[in-house]
Nucleic acid binder design. Structure first.
Lengths: 336, 336
DNA sequence: CTGAAAGCGCTAACAA
DNA sequence: TTGTTAGCGCTTTCAG
């Protein structure tokens, strides 16, 4: 049997309400009384029961976090940003992996809601009608982190992926490249696939370079898929002189795929990645990449969620963070 | 106002006890009654309140996980193992970063206990008296994952780090190396520092190689510290012909530090890492490394925890998983 | 197979 | 400044 607020009350010779007050830092308690209670708490080793508190107050001070895969460098960094801010605001986090599986995502939302979380940060891939339906019916606020809702019906924190891809590819073009390969994610994936792909296409378009299907490969975000993609691109009759990969991990694969086949980076082929994960400096040549502030996206989305949970006024519920290109050794284009 | 078990009971024309029974899958309910209840649940969109359930049943089906840093490749992989098994057993996970800060660790344990978690998986560095004291007084089971308690007072899942380091270094010796450098973690760190260091020393000893202080560098687990360590080791009057790093990330730094200074790996210097994170194949030459089954350590520790939570019999509460050496391109010693 | 009723430990009016 | 008293939504005996 654990010690309860009653035990403390008896020990301190006050009512349980008073104990509750001192535990919750209510100022309406005489210092002397407060001390008696504190001593009793100390003496009994009393630890408040957050579940009971949650039931009575209808607040659990915990938020749910749905993440595709915590073992991915990218998402782990995001999660760190989320958790740091959550901790700063005294929230705990229930973390669950979804593997981007829609059914599991929906399920997770429901179990989190059963657990009465005060809010949810959702990271995923495609946001379907069904997702939006769920989100809208949620009794607690939800914000998307690094996840795009095309119709902006759900609060979210992102960078402009298409624009970022556009910038990277245009840099390559201005650096003199005309045949630029792309290693994309699945085009069904709104962020790493579709958005970045359309930025790529747009950059070609604007610069009057005809788009060629054969220069685009679809990978699965893994290092190996980047490696294979590079090798198949270089087997083309007219191979690219630069390759843009939609994630850093694939970009590393691309670099090594090129090197393994005897191509020199950046002398023969320029490579640009996306994300600026820690991987980008752990390769030779080091990787020029689009900087996506992952930690910040996590932190900002959690901060946004706290505002919703406190029913604070928020002026802009879909926030777009800035991006930029980090020039390293895998390209030899002039830095802007 | 959310719909409660009472609403369902009224709607279905039964008592709340019956509703509770069908929600909890209690077989003692007539199929016809069950159907009525299920229909009512469906119709009302009833969602059981896990907090209320937790208060009444004294079980929350959530476990706490204390982790040094979720953005580390190593721990993220462990966390994935933990979460997968937790999910398999219908537990949710409250995840918190400690940065190996002792005060924060103790604090986290307490807030997790306040939240009435059913158990805790703890990952950390040094386990002090105070830690053990906390663990012993915990009302719920705790297991250590990839974290060593010297006195085996607390259940834990690990590999034999000293032995693993010993094996790696001995391989190097058998491969003909006599001057072997080490990039260690802080010697205060029982696992990545002390244990691995003593394995290193032991291997030298057994093979009659005198230990030389100058061949050991202490890093901070970062890529950069590995890079700097390699460069300082190679400035020695009598530099090493092989370097053993206590983590993969530092080993990557070592390889690139060597390459940046014009040394060839493995022709001039062999390099062995530790962990076999995904990084090991994302480098050229690919990294020979000690395989530590991170995912498995996480999975096994969670499994162990479920046994404790179910009050099942466990015969061995400190489990030691096997390790092995994965031969890749950063060494040219013969594979055993 | 079903219902009644007593808590689980705490918060939050409302009184005093 | 402090105490009394309803609940919060559910599980769990105990009866029937």
């Amino acid at each position: 049997m654990n010690t309860t607020i009653y035990d403390v009350a008896r020990e301190a010779g006050v009512s349980m309400a008073t104990v509750s007050r001192v535990v919750n830092g209510n100022p309406n308690v005489k210092p002397a009384t407060r001390k008696k209670v504190l001593d009793a708490i100390e003496g009994l080793g009393y630890r408040p029961n957050a579940v009971a508190r949650g039931l009575a107050s209808k607040k659990t001070t915990t938020v749910g976090v749905i993440i595709p895969d915590i073992s991915s460098v990218f998402f782990a960094e995001l999660a760190r940003g989320i958790e740091d801010i959550a901790m700063m605001y005294k929230y705990n986090i229930i973390l669950s992996n979804s593997d981007q599986n829609k059914d599991r995502e929906i399920n997770l939302i429901n179990t989190l809601l059963e657990k009465q979380v005060d809010g949810i940060v959702f990271m995923g891939g495609e946001i379907t009608e069904e997702h939006v339906e769920q989100f809208k019916h949620s009794p607690v606020p939800i914000v998307l982190a690094a996840t795009v809702d095309e119709n902006k019906e759900v609060p979210s924190v992102n960078i402009d992926y298409a624009d970022a891809a556009f910038d990277a590819v245009e840099e390559l073009i201005e650096g003199g490249h005309q045949r630029i390969g792309m290693v994309s994610g699945s085009l069904e994936d709104p962020v790493n696939g579709y958005k970045k792909f359309s930025g790529y296409k747009e950059a070609l378009n604007k610069n009057n370079i005809t788009f060629e299907e054969e220069l685009v490969t679809v990978g699965d975000y893994s290092y190996d898929s980047g490696l294979r993609a590079a090798q198949s691109l270089m087997k083309l009759e007219n191979p690219p002189t630069a390759i843009f990969a939609s994630t850093d991990e694939m970009a590393l694969g691309v670099i090594h795929g090129l090197q393994d086949d005897g191509f020199s980076v950046p002398d023969q082929v320029n490579v640009i990645g996306f994300d600026n994960t820690r991987l980008a400096t752990m390769v030779r040549p080091t990787l020029t990449t689009v900087v996506q502030p992952m930690y910040d996206i996590g932190a900002v989305s959690m901060r946004l969620l706290t505002k919703f949970m406190n029913k604070e006024e928020v002026d802009e519920s879909t926030v777009v963070l800035p991006h930029r290109l980090e020039y390293r050794q895998s390209t030899n284009i002039p830095e802007k």
